[in-house]
Simulated scan of single mutants.
Amino acid sequence: MKKSLFALAALGAFAGAAQAQTNVTLYGVIDAPIEYVNHFAASPPTQNPATGQLVQSPNGGSLFRMPSYGGLSTSRWGLRGTEDLGNGLQAVFVLESGFGSDDGSLQYASASGPRIFGRQAFVGLQSKDYGKLTLGRQYTSIFWAMANFSPTFYSTLYEPVVAQLGANYREDNTVQYTGAFGPVTAVAHYSFGTGLQAVGATPTFGGGAGEVPGHAKDNTGYGAGVSYQAAGFGASVAYDQWNPNFAATAGNAGSAKKAAAALSYTWGPAKVMAGYRWGQLKAANGGTLARDDYYWAAVNYQVNAPISLTLAYYYDDVKILRTATTTPVVNLPNPWQITFQADYAFSKRTDVYLATAYAKNGGLNFSASNSSFSNGYFLTQGNDSQVGVAIGIRHKF
């Protein structure tokens, strides 16, 4: 639903700001699935500091629920706008808020409370010749570089987005440049303070010592990516680094590094893709907390105008995964997952879907431990696999 600035002014929020050359769009998605998951633990596992072994919770079982924040898409609403400044230059902004479709709650929290615009909040300038420069809370470069190579388009059900991109795929206090040059798109960013903090190998939101005098590295992040799309062929490479502060006091920055590459090819109704991501997490003292090689492959198939299918495979070769440098390194089984989605579109705005996945050697979306691999699906004690099935309806406005 598009609203002119004059219409929105009737709400009082933008009174007196309307200009003839300004365009503001109200947009969003509401996605409500019903999900079944087996072997679902009531709490995340812990890691025995003496042996390094994961200790799973014995409490839990099968779970029927309505997930809070979406299915194929995360439920959200936002405002985006442009103002023509002349000579091919525009001012741009985006304010985007995530919400629970089941209870209306805000999606994100910080140290100071819920975030109204926790998904995106930025303003900037864009030129048709020189690209776009934006400032605020934004997605990282690796997120944009890999977006066209995501098997399920970063679906909440079921894609290991955190495992692939890192928990810092959105960052506060970020300056970002994006430029399109024919079939090539380049993006780079720098965050003065990401808004995340690492406790052991576990990221927590709203913490960190970013933007502290005398500790310029703490909680910063940066990265870049380059993508090519032409004649059905796509290729992309990206690098991302986050320097998490590992303590409540400043001066304890470690490093979380990721590098990724992906390819795709489209012919007729089918698109095939494959990718690889290298990852490493180090503590402030230089000790390695996590090291892995992550792979994925998938096919998207448009059966006819309303029906689309997706089949994806994900595999993570875990070399090291521990909560502290004093925890012994143990050989963990490598998690893998198969995801299938079927979508039926009633219109361009409304669709229904089936999503299902099977994970081995970890919970769905590679929730192997209380680490950066975690995405919320934890296994009960004595189980090494998990199945999830969901049906839902989605409406875009």
Rank of each mutant, 00 (worst) to 15 (best):
F149G: 02
L165W: 00
Q164R: 15
Q138I: 06
N168D: 10
Q164N: 15
V162I: 08
T202S: 01
A186Q: 09
Y190I: 01
S150H: 13
P203C: 09
L125F: 09
N148L: 07
S155F: 00
K132Y: 12
T174W: 03
Y177N: 08
Q138V: 14
Q126A: 03
L165H: 04
R170K: 01
Y108R: 07
V199H: 14
A167I: 00
F122P: 01
P114T: 12
M146G: 00
A198P: 00
I116E: 11
L125D: 07
T202R: 03
I116F: 10
Y139C: 05
E159C: 09
G193A: 10
S150E: 05
N173T: 05
A198M: 08
Q176A: 09
F205E: 15
R119H: 11
F192P: 05
Q120M: 08
G131T: 01
M146C: 02
L135P: 02
Q120I: 09
T140W: 07
L157C: 11
T134F: 00
Y158R: 10
F122M: 03
S141T: 09
Y158T: 13
A201V: 15
Q126P: 05
F205I: 15
F192N: 07
H189Q: 11
P160N: 04
I116L: 14
V162A: 12
T152V: 01
T174N: 02
T194C: 08
P114N: 11
S127E: 04
T202K: 06
T178R: 08
P183K: 09
G193M: 14
E159Y: 08
P160E: 04
I116K: 01
A188V: 14
S141G: 04
G195T: 07
L157T: 11
R137N: 09
V123H: 09
S191G: 01
G124E: 11
T204V: 15
F205Y: 05
A109Q: 08
